[in-house]
């Protein structure tokens, strides 16, 4: 177990170093920053002085080392677009994205698992068939089209829910939350529904497939033969083994939610990190892009590592220290 833990953490560190290298290379791609910092008629000596002051005369690997060192402290320099520290920009935007993703993830689990169980236990019922069909549509619809349809129906035609922004937010320290006001909660509904729909259908289909698989196994048949009540078989014996793969997929998809939040935030003008990232992409604002990339990768890596460890805790068969190929 400890060996597994250490190996996973070393692997994660390598992934993060690779991502940092990509982020670092992005700066190198964007031409020579010295040109924009000195006067046009500057002499070679003046240019060299600026270069030395910025540390650009050092070998590449030293520059990379310095970049990693600063990134580890959250320092990504100033945004090229509005000259504010990138870390401040991201910190301002982070709560909005985090709340949106958390609500969407919660919704997809709370609805997806019961619906999946329902369709697995009664696969031929009318409601199960309808749900299966709806989930097919849910997977095929582009997320932004879903969002537009939600706005058209619930904001434009019915006028029930707001279609942009976070509503009123309450500041708790540096964290601004929309959970505490009515308008904040109302503003959360449509974006989180849009963000969770794809996830929801995925979890529902996964739970259904896993559950049907488990229900066919011998130990379930044996439990039936022992005359256990079907409620106990379905929920105590079958569901437990169903949920293990669901945890993995859910963990991986949580990262996907953060990426897809970019689209949701654009559709609903949600003031989160994704909207910031899109602005950075369209203006070629490298520091913001690099910082977002590193931050999101860090979240991904932490989630993936946690899921792997959780997996080992939940499934006793994986606890034996086996070589990587074995699982």
């Amino acid at each position: 177990m400890l060996g597994f833990l250490i190996r996973r953490i070393i692997q994660s560190v390598f992934v993060m170093l690779a991502v940092a290298l990509i982020a670092f290379m992005m700066f190198r791609f964007m031409g020579d920053p010295v040109n924009s910092m000195v006067a046009e008629n500057a002499t070679t000596e003046e240019r060299d002085a600026v270069r030395a002051r910025l540390g650009l005369d050092q070998p590449l690997w030293m520059q990379y080392g310095r970049f990693v060192g600063r990134a580890a402290q959250g320092d990504f320099g100033l945004s090229w677009r509005n000259a504010r520290p990138v870390s401040t920009l991201l910190a301002e935007r982070f709560p909005a994205t985090a709340e949106l993703v958390l609500v969407a993830a919660g919704l997809s689990l709370l609805l997806g698992i019961p619906l999946g169980i329902l369709t697995a236990l009664r696969p031929n019922s009318f409601s199960a068939q309808t749900l299966q069909f709806l989930s097919l549509i849910g997977i095929s619809l582009p997320t932004f089209v879903t969002g537009i349809l939600l706005i058209l129906v619930f904001s434009v035609w019915l006028g029930w829910l707001p279609s942009f922004g976070r509503g009123e937010v309450v500041d708790i320290g540096w964290w601004s939350t929309g959970f505490l006001t009515l308008s904040g909660l109302k503003a959360l509904v449509l974006p989180s529904v849009m963000l969770c729909l794809f996830q929801l259908t995925l979890i529902m289909r996964l739970v259904r497939a896993e559950m049907m698989e488990v229900l066919r196994t011998d130990y379930i048949k044996f439990a039936r033969a022992r005359g256990l009540p079907s409620r106990s078989i379905n929920f105590r014996h079958a569901l437990r083994n169903t949920l293990i793969p669901v945890i993995t997929i859910f963990g991986l998809q949580l990262g996907g939610l953060i990426a897809f939040a970019i689209i949701t935030e654009t559709v609903f003008q949600w003031p989160g990190m994704g909207a910031l990232f899109i602005q950075a992409v369209s203006f070629g604002d490298v520091p913001v892009m690099a910082a977002y990339l590193v931050l999101v990768s860090l979240i991904f890596v932490v989630i993936n590592t946690t899921v792997d460890l959780l997996y080992a805790v939940l499934d006793p068969r994986l606890r034996v220290d086996s070589p990587r190929g074995a699982h």
Binding site: I22, G255, G256, A280
Partner: peptide, 16 residues
């Protein structure tokens, strides 16, 4: 990484 994120990054670099 999700495909859309990678595509956005390549796009952003090209724009830069």
């Amino acid at each position: 990484f999700p495909a859309i994120l990678v595509a956005l990054l390549v796009n952003g670099i090209a724009r830069g």
